[in-house]
């Protein structure tokens, strides 16, 4: 029923229905069906870039991208096209951009998991028990590391709130890999002695905040 409409007309219909609170499934489905082939092509290229992926991933990523296009992309597209029409391109190109980002995000997040042995129980049964145990242990370590890093960033957020000068010095010295007090001092317009002092103070407070957060986190789990 939408065959006679151009992409732009069909997209306008989706936007209109959404604004009116009407169902958008049919026109949106028809629209993204038209874009499915180029979307899968883009996904395949991202898969190639990461040297991973399967057709099953491609289906999942396409569906994710459609969901994001519907959730945030329609508004984002409107905002971008109003402010920077030269960069927004067509709805189709914008959708393909979302596809690209969904795919990159997926393969970034799953880099470690994909590198590890399969976690599917059926596949795992084919692995020697020692490999399975190693995979389980590696998974546990990854989870612990992720949790520890999350707490670290929470501790850093607290440092930024309570000791912003120390946090800026720490950010520059460690997170931005400057690792040179003369350069830190130059960039922050402070003395070298002050750079040493701020980084040192940041380290102490970060440790104390981190230890407090760990205790709170374990307290919540208990």
């Amino acid at each position: 029923m939408y065959e006679q409409l151009s992409d732009d007309e069909l997209f306008a219909e989706v936007v209109r229905r959404r604004s009116a609170g009407e169902p958008v499934g049919a026109p949106l489905g028809s629209l993204v069906d038209r874009w499915a082939r180029p979307a899968r092509y883009v996904i395949s290229k991202i898969q190639a870039s990461y040297g991973r992926g399967s057709p099953a991933d491609a289906d999942e990523l396409f569906q994710d991208a459609v969901g994001k296009f519907l959730d945030r992309g329609l508004d984002q597209f409107r905002g971008v096209s109003e402010q920077m029409p030269g960069r927004s391109a067509s709805p189709k190109t914008f959708f393909l951009r979302i596809v690209k980002h969904v795919a990159i995000d997926f393969y970034r997040r799953h880099r470690e998991e994909l590198a590890a042995p399969p976690s599917d129980p059926d596949d795992a049964m084919e692995e020697p028990p020692s490999e399975v145990a190693r995979a389980v242990e590696a998974g546990k370590r990854r989870e612990e590391r992720a949790e520890a890093q999350e707490l670290y960033w929470s501790a850093f957020a607290r440092l930024q709130q309570e000791h912003p000068k120390e946090a800026s010095a720490w950010e520059l010295y460690h997170h931005e890999d400057v690792e040179d007090h003369e350069e830190c001092a130059r960039r922050l317009n402070i003395s070298v002695v002050n750079s040493y002092k701020r980084v040192s103070r940041a380290q102490a407070y970060l440790k104390l905040y981190l230890l407090d957060l760990q205790r709170e986190s374990h307290g919540e789990e208990a």
Binding site: Y41, K45, I46, S49, L96, R97, K100, I104, Y107
Partner: peptide
Amino acid sequence: ECAQAVLALEEGDEAIEEALDM
């Protein structure tokens, strides 16, 4: 890891152009 992500962005752009051309 992040350099690869930025590279993937560029490869993705090329892929979008190719897909549109096709």
